[in-house]
Amino acid sequence: MQPEVPDRDYMFPGHVGCPGCGAAIAMRFLLKALGEKTVMVIPACCWSIIAGAYPQSALKIPVLHTAFETGGAVASGVRAALDMKGDTETTVVTWAGDGGTFDIGFQALSGAVERNEDFLYVCYDNEAYMNTGIQRSSSTPYGAWTTTTPGRDWKKMRKKNIVEALVAHRIPYAATASIAFPEDLFRKVAKAKAIKGARFIHIFASCPTGWRIPSEISVKIARMAVQTNIFPLYEVEDGLRYTINFFPKGYLVKEYFRLQGRFKHLTEKDLDQIQSMVEEDWKLLLRKAGLS
């Protein structure tokens, strides 16, 4: 049973994201679920720009822009201050990109989750440093071109599994979500909002500019990432109880790869190898969910 997504928006009609920006769609649905009693911390990422320059802001909630690696720490401080003022109702949310989460901000995030700070950390993942011009991050998938993995030096390492890293902290709630499944995304944010302690949502947010795709297929690409098992939708409670939310019907990864300029250099053999890597990851997830 999927929830009713409210019409009310907490974004103004106007921001400076690129056409088809998955991160803008993700923000819109996140805020619909969180509502106005929300304070947002944004470490350096695309949204540092998308939100607009002084004196304007695209968001209808208080926003604290902060340094790149500080998402977990700044939110801990905001939470502590609100608690001291007796405000336990307001949700503190960190909104960070993959660079600020998987790489430079990982220490502060790990620290905040280990302390089980009462906040929600949301990573919108566009799989590279897009704001600085498409440089590789540890979230960039195997096989991708970026401006720092050009030509034959395309990325040969796997994408870091951030959810599993946080699950290893026994985080009370961790989930993946996708802009192509807004009701699922909304439900997970609403569920996370009601939980005490540290919560993490990993949102797959396509990037037409960085992925070299037409903006009109931004959502389609995000949907295909789920349908091919490249980005499975699942949630984990207390670091133990896995629930898989979507069981795909066997699309091949090459259908997803062939639509994106960032993968155009890959050979059939490379794609076969990636297909087996994806299947291996899916089997592992099924095992964790007790389904194999």
């Binding site: 902060t66 500080t70 700044v74 905001v78 502060a108 620290g111």
Partner: peptide, 16 residues
């Protein structure tokens, strides 16, 4: 977990 985070946390708290 670090001095960098100590100051960052206070930036959050003081801003609130």
């Amino acid at each position: 977990e670090s001095e960098h985070s100590a100051m960052a946390a206070l930036i959050g708290a003081s801003s609130a």
